[in-house]
Amino acid sequence: MTDGKVNTLAALQELIEVVAKLRSPDGGCPWDLAQTPETLIPYVIEEAYEVVDAIKSKETEAIKEELGDLLLQVVLQTQIASESGQFALAEVAQGISQKLIRRHPHVFGDVSVASVDEVRQNWEQIKAAEKGESSPNNQKLSAKLSRYGRTLPPLMAAMKISQKAAAVGFEWENIDGVWDKFHEELGEFQQALAEETPERQQAELGDLLFAILQLARWYNLDPSAALQGTNQRFVQRLEKMEAVSDRPLSDYSLDELETLWQQAKAQIAKEL
């Protein structure tokens, strides 16, 4: 056990030193030196999604590699912060350890819990107290929903926001009302495309997407999984098209591409 801990600490220290060298003005990497916390945001998001994809694949090597890429983002962010005296990796690790201890009084203290729900309730109450907020049960709905909008991916945030709003009664009486809202938003989007500014068009597109998500919620469908499936099917069909093509797809006419598309679609349907 001791050797394992030493190896882990040594490996982490090596990573810290490698990243510090990459950021060193004396012989470091120009790309790494040019990065800021803000420019690295897309990579943090991308690496997190790639970890999720690897976990779903259940491939051990892929999971290990992608977790490493995500860990790099943590170390790189803390390296940049340490260069301006903000904080270091040790403070980040210590901070999360202390938070886990505080929020698990049933493990590290003398609190008793009878269910997972009680654990979750305690966590939220302790979290609110730490942030100087009122109990989650007493927080204004808008404050909760604002946090979802800031911190979650848009599709997930929209579903969370609509679910929480519906839970307090801000909801249609039946599915017909949801469909009416969808058609209303579709009409407003079409009108904006014909007559309004790009800003209004963007806003109406957002309203239309939000209405579609309400339909998904009422029919108990997962919009993120649905869109992910569509993305995968689109790529699969392109792969089939390229497999039977004797030249780049860009050299085909639109009618030829449509024919190849329909053939690929039919072939995939037979394979299911």
Rank of each mutant, 00 (worst) to 15 (best):
M1W: 04
T2P: 09
G4Q: 11
L12P: 09
Q13V: 09
E14M: 03
L15W: 05
L15F: 03
L15E: 07
G27K: 04
C29F: 05
T36I: 03
P42V: 09
P42G: 10
Y43C: 15
I45T: 13
E47Y: 08
E47D: 08
E50C: 11
V51L: 04
A54Q: 11
S57Q: 01
S57H: 01
K58N: 09
T60A: 15
E61T: 04
A62E: 09
A62N: 05
A62H: 07
A62Y: 03
I63C: 01
K64H: 13
E65C: 10
E66P: 11
E66R: 08
Q73E: 00
V74T: 04
V75L: 14
V75M: 15
Q77F: 05
Q79K: 14
I80T: 04
A81S: 02
A81F: 03
A88P: 07
L89N: 03
L89M: 06
A90E: 10
E91A: 08
E91W: 05
A93R: 12
Q98V: 01
K99N: 00
I101K: 04
R102T: 00
H104I: 10
P105S: 07
G109P: 12
S112G: 01
A114F: 13
S115C: 02
S115T: 07
S115N: 07
V116Y: 12
D117N: 12
D117Y: 08
E118S: 13
V119M: 15
E124I: 08
E124W: 11
Q125D: 09
I126C: 12
A129E: 15
E130V: 06
S134F: 02
S135Y: 08
Q139C: 12
K144R: 12
K144V: 14
S146W: 14
S146R: 12
R147E: 05
Y148S: 03
R150P: 00
T151G: 02
T151M: 06
P153E: 08
P154C: 01
P154G: 01
L155I: 11
A157Y: 07
K160I: 11
K160R: 15
I161K: 02
A165Q: 09
A167S: 12
G169E: 05
E173C: 11
I175Q: 07
I175W: 01
I175L: 00
W179L: 11
D180W: 07
K181C: 01
F182I: 10
F182R: 06
H183D: 10
E185H: 01
E185V: 02
L186P: 00
F189Y: 10
Q190N: 00
Q190M: 06
Q191M: 01
A194P: 06
E195V: 00
E196H: 04
E199Q: 10
A203K: 14
L208S: 04
L209S: 05
F210Y: 14
L213S: 00
Q214K: 02
L215T: 14
D222K: 00
S224F: 14
T230N: 13
N231A: 06
N231T: 04
Q232Y: 06
R233E: 02
R233I: 08
V235I: 05
R237G: 03
L238Q: 14
E239I: 06
M241T: 00
V244P: 06
V244S: 07
R247L: 08
R247P: 06
L249H: 05
E258N: 02
E258K: 01
T259V: 14
A264C: 07
K265F: 05
Q267T: 15
I268E: 08
K270D: 10
K270A: 14
E271N: 08
L272W: 07
